[in-house]
Design a protein around this nucleic acid. Structure first.
Lengths: 336, 336
DNA sequence: CGTTAGCACTCTCGCACCTTGGTTGCTAAA
DNA sequence: TTTAGCAACCAAGGTGCGAGAGTGCTAACG
């Protein structure tokens, strides 16, 4: 539908705009790229591209700027061809994180930092929702006769804990008994299993109010979307981008990002779709406040454990770089 | 040294400037406050206050603006008199957090959110450096013959965990033995004790390379300043302040805040000094990038467990409100 | 001596105006 | 279909001017 040359023109324009953040015109385009035609010809192409909705003018007699649709075709082309050929994803990033900590939190933190710096965007690394894996062990630690801590360990090494307060005194023997029972009941099950079996079964042990209480807390533990295990870094990177030189532009974005609810929903559909990496451009975002920004996200982890690693920046972001970086992060986070 | 009236003038000026964020002149001052003198008189006082270094003019023929020194006397006066009389610290905040979660992380999160909203500043709640308390229990969970998780529980309910990789295969019996030994050795000790006794003693058990390895990891666990247990919220609040309407003003601040190292050192001396709440104004901050901002911080937790709750905003912040809010947060976080 | 009124002075801010550089769209020619 | 030339356009940046706000000074007053 789009002639070969016009695709080249669009691509050149987007690359220039990404680099310089200024509207780019026909002459500049012919000077910076070997298009082999004169500015006048390019002008015609630009006009056609504008009619097709891929670019627009901020005002008459300025250069052109890509629209969301323009970025979209650019990215699709990138995803289908550009990245497949160059399979090594972001060597700089891989080098930096080689031999990183085995501690999951620390690794997430470092990955996030590397992402932010290498892409000049805000990066978010969300932990897999606790316990995609199976329960390996449950430990109860008594703090007093009124309080205890529940610690749940998954076989992928994740640990969650929760303080529980009893309505009546509980001896350490009772606690130990409950611990044994719980381990017998729940070890080897996934979070989903636990909830399902609890709904269905009427295990006699559940009559015990203590066990009942603790199981509720365990379920709570497992289901928590666990906001505190999201690492985000790179607001300063974002501030350096010219589109955010005015605080008013950044404010709506930050409001969304600081609201865990919204943030989580943003990544709901990260996994779906064929491509392993999701790119959401400008108005493609569900929240209208995010009209000016793009998100490159990608799930990680084994099975359906839904960790997400993402990069957030202005629509004028270096998509190629971002996609490679996110993929690199994905692979780093997978084989921890 | 400062006459009664001049103190009143200074105070009035600072209050107005905090409210309107604009340089305030003599006439405005007499109109908005019942000073009982004419603008001309106030002008003389302002001139004197400027000579004394408490206020300054952004440029000739503009109103006056408080200097760091001006804020300092204002705050000192506040701390010595104003707050003592009104002992109820920030009822709105207390109400909001009544019956909050017993989970420490969740409580920190909610406290941070409340602080940010009620003060219109950035808020930071840092967890007590893990294990100011005493070790209550150590649990080892085997993941494979090569890997295990160390979980340390303190008697104040904090939990820390760490994955450790062995250089050779370890059976679950060996692990259980090590766990027993560790509990016998370390339960009841504080982090400081552990390190001290390890330096001094030459317990025979430590010859065992496995135990040795695990103890090292435990110490690591205890000492970690634990960056991921800091909750900060309210960047959007900060963005709403006129002093940060330009992103360039916010950039240095964010760079400092995103660097855990610097951030931690910032609160090093929070505890010292007689007053329970630390107020650091503008250039009093160690980092020169923080010249334009103030920090109101306050330690919390029992004993010398060094949790910190703080509020960060422009030097033109509502100190009275911030101090009350931080104190309220302190008391909420104490009796969890 | 402290306080007040009047007045000249200074400086920023906002507005109008102009110039300049870069870009477009159109037309006609190759 | 491509190219060259040309008129028109518009944002950005600089200049000049008037309005407004505030100061500092001086002189008068109690």
């Amino acid at each position: 539908m789009l002639s070969e040359r016009r695709q080249r023109v669009l691509r050149a324009l987007i690359e220039d705009y990404i680099e310089y953040a200024l509207p780019v015109g026909s002459r500049t385009l012919t000077e910076r790229h070997r298009l082999g035609v004169s500015p006048a010809t390019v002008r015609n192409d630009l006009s056609a591209l504008e009619d097709a909705g891929f670019i627009q003018q901020p005002h008459t007699s300025a250069g052109r700027v890509p629209t969301d649709a323009g970025y979209r075709t650019f990215v699709d082309e990138l995803l289908s061809s550009g990245l497949a050929e160059e399979e090594r994803p972001h060597p700089a990033m891989m080098d930096e994180l080689r031999g990183a900590a085995c501690e999951l939190d620390a690794l997430m933190e470092r990955t996030s930092a590397a992402l932010a710096r290498l892409t000049d965007c805000l990066s978010i690394v969300m932990a897999p929702s606790v316990f995609a894996g199976r329960i390996r062990q449950i430990t109860l630690v008594s703090l007093s006769v009124w309080q205890a801590i529940i610690i749940v360990v998954a076989d992928d090494g994740q640990v969650a804990n929760r303080t529980v307060t009893f309505s009546e005194e509980v001896t350490s023997d009772e606690l130990a008994a409950a611990q044994n029972l719980l381990n017998r009941l729940l070890v080897g099950q996934s979070a989903r299993d636990v909830r399902r079996s609890l709904d269905a079964s009427t295990i006699e042990a559940l009559r015990d109010p203590l066990v009942q209480l603790i199981i509720d807390e365990v379920v709570e533990c497992l289901g928590v979307s666990d906001g505190n295990r999201a690492h985000s870094l790179g607001i300063s990177s974002l501030l350096r981008q010219p589109e955010f030189s005015d605080a008013k532009a950044l404010l709506p974005v930050m409001e969304v990002l600081e609201d865990d609810e919204v943030l989580l929903h943003t990544f709901d559909d990260t996994v779906e779709g064929g491509s392993p990496v999701m790119v959401r451009i400008g108005r493609e975002n569900p929240a209208s406040e995010l009209a000016g920004i793009s998100i490159v996200a990608c799930p990680y982890g084994r099975g359906d454990s839904e960790g997400v690693v993402a990069v957030i920046g202005p629509t004028r972001m270096n998509y190629g770089n971002a996609i490679r970086a996110v993929r690199a992060a994905q692979s780093v986070l997978c084989d921890d």
